[in-house]
Amino acid sequence: MHKLVVLYPEPTDRDAFTAYYEATHLPLAAKLPGLIRWQYTTNVSPQADGTPAPYFAVFEAEFASAEDFANAMGSPEGQAVAQDVPNYATGGAIVLDYAVTEGTKS
């Protein structure tokens, strides 16, 4: 399993971010070839001491392998997703991708 996580710092306008993200960006991301599952939130909890979280939104996507992820991001759909980020992410975006090591409950 290979995972993509995108962390979004606080945008200039939360409502504009959310409206664009949900109506335009997420439908683009949902078209990524090889995508198994995706989820997101714009409701990140404050830190334990009550200070705001360092991120406003989080997106997670799963692919079967690193090769599937690379193929998805290199595809026309992947290029469209990457090129769309500046249209809404005024606070920028931190992109992480990694192989997942499964664990078991002891």
Rank of each mutant, 00 (worst) to 15 (best):
W38K: 09
T42N: 14
A99H: 13
V81Y: 00
A53L: 01
A72C: 03
L4H: 04
P11E: 05
A99L: 14
E102P: 09
Y88Q: 10
A48W: 08
K3D: 06
G92S: 02
F59W: 07
A93C: 03
P76T: 01
V6P: 01
S75V: 00
L7A: 04
D15Y: 11
G34I: 00
V100W: 13
L26W: 07
F69P: 00
P46D: 05
R14S: 15
Q83T: 08
F63L: 03
P86E: 06
S75Y: 00
P52G: 02
D84C: 03
A48Q: 11
A53I: 02
A89Y: 03
V58H: 03
Q79V: 10
Q83G: 13
G103Q: 12
I36W: 06
H25M: 06
P11R: 06
F56C: 01
A61G: 07
L35K: 08
A19I: 10
T12Y: 09
E102G: 13
S45V: 11
A99K: 14
T18H: 12
A19L: 12
W38S: 12
V5D: 11
P46H: 05
V5P: 09
H25Q: 10
F63V: 02
D84A: 04
A57S: 11
Q79I: 09
V85D: 02
R37I: 05
F69V: 03
H2C: 10
A89L: 05
L35P: 04
R14M: 10
P33Y: 01
D49R: 04
K3S: 13
V58I: 14
P52E: 02
F17H: 06
Y20N: 08
F17M: 07
T18V: 15
E22K: 15
H2L: 10
A53C: 02
D13E: 10
M73Q: 09
D97M: 08
N71C: 06
V85N: 04
E102V: 10
N43P: 07
A89F: 05
